[in-house]
Design a binder for these strands. Structure first.
Lengths: 234, 234
DNA sequence: GATTTTCTAGACCATGTGGTCTATATCTTA
DNA sequence: TAAGATATAGACCACATGGTCTAGAAAATC
């Protein structure tokens, strides 16, 4: 590894708990491969220090008063300095983990974890990897899958909606309507007369309980008529 | 643990490679805590065996000809027997991992991994956990974050779209159009005359380069006019 | 202060849209 | 075989919609 010949990695710490802050600084200094370029007890100060010292990685506490950690991740990203964020938290709140990762945190570790694991996490992140301990990734995935389950359940319910009463031909017509095509256009696309299209459209309106094409299109979109084909294409 | 007093867990294997199938069966039988109730070299047969033997867990190969593994996950879920699926694959394809997890796989392991790790994965999944080895979860998260990054970049681009040329009043009118309201309705809602509404609408059409309200509404929806307010509220 | 933009609103007209009713051929289902 | 659903299509009518042009008042910008 010959890490000792490498330049030390610049690290910045943001945590509203000063004790904890000092503890981590101590730990990282002892490790010897890190250079703690700054510490801050709130986001605003932290952002200024980041701009000033351009650390490679920021250890960011998630549970802070005022501007919370999620906001912090966003704002650090906005600086566009390529700063990596390793989220720190006292709790393994699935929602928080999910959102932090979604916003681009490179990792998420619990404060209760062994210091060796923290060091390891930092190194992994510095090496360009994303690090989430097994216990947390497990929580993350439960949340992740649950959100998709809810989505698909909602979709199933939606399949029992008014759209299901449409005949195949009516669906074809509706699909063209959702592209903003006129009667004439639909007629020529489906090789039927304009009046036939009108008949279909009128039947669609009655089945969807709407009065005009705009409402029909809106109903279709809101009830997954279009997305069904695109979305979740396995 | 006293695992030896527990009932053996019913396991089913699906993999188009019979050699591999037999190998895993051997491994699990040696382990002693599993009861391999069936093996199949394709999804269709596998589904029938699942219905028959109702295994607690299915080890499902992702890379199969014809019906692929993702389809398999979906169809096993549709059986609604609470069968847990542990995905097996030869490659750490991020997209495949992402989609498998999205569809509800309880875990994902590589065929190249040590057998002890496979056993561990199976046990974790049987215990109701979701198991993704660090290397794979790392790949998953890269993919996951990238998809969100693209999404937000796309949104930023979209803010530079034709919608931005609309005046405030025109936006108000458009918003009402997206609710399927007529000229008359818009006029009374905004306390202006119907002809004024028409003027606004015509201006909107020109700015959005469309010919009718349906297309305008579609443009608005597709370009985040409505969702912008709701979506991604951190 | 002059210019531009925005919001307002009218007139006129062609055409698209929606409502209703009738009707035939085909196909499915009871 | 009769009944029902579906796809087709015509006629007629009222009105909503879209295109174009003109124009005044207010606000913003230069």
């Amino acid at each position: 590894m010959r890490r000792e010949f490498k330049k030390k990695s610049r690290v910045l710490l943001i945590d509203d708990n000063y004790e904890h802050l000092a503890g981590i600084r101590e730990l990282l200094n002892l490790e010897g491969t890190f250079d703690v370029v700054g510490i801050a007890t709130n986001i605003t100060v932290g952002l200024n220090l980041i701009k000033k010292y351009q650390p490679e990685i920021v250890l960011l506490d998630m549970n802070m008063p005022e501007k919370d950690g999620l906001q912090g991740i966003l704002e650090i990203a906005k600086l566009d300095l390529g700063t990596k964020v390793l989220a720190l938290s006292g709790y393994d709140d699935a929602d928080l983990i999910f959102r932090a990762m979604k916003l681009g945190a490179k990792g998420y570790v619990l404060k209760t974890m062994a210091s060796a694991q923290l060091i390891y996490a930092i190194e992994e992140v510095l090496n360009g990897k994303i690090y989430l301990p097994l216990a947390l990734s497990s929580r993350f995935f439960e949340y992740f899958q649950q959100s998709f389950r809810q989505e698909s359940e909602k979709e199933e319910v939606e399949e029992e909606n008014l759209l299901s009463y449409l005949t195949q031909r009516e669906e074809e017509v509706l699909e063209l309507l959702t592209q903003g095509i006129t009667y004439k256009g639909v007629a020529s696309k489906l090789f039927i007369s304009e009046t036939t299209v009108k008949t279909h459209v009128n039947n669609i309106f009655q089945k969807l309980q709407v009065n005009d094409r705009t409402q029909a299109v809106l109903y279709a979109i809101n009830n997954g008529f279009l997305t069904k084909k695109v979305k979740m294409a396995v």
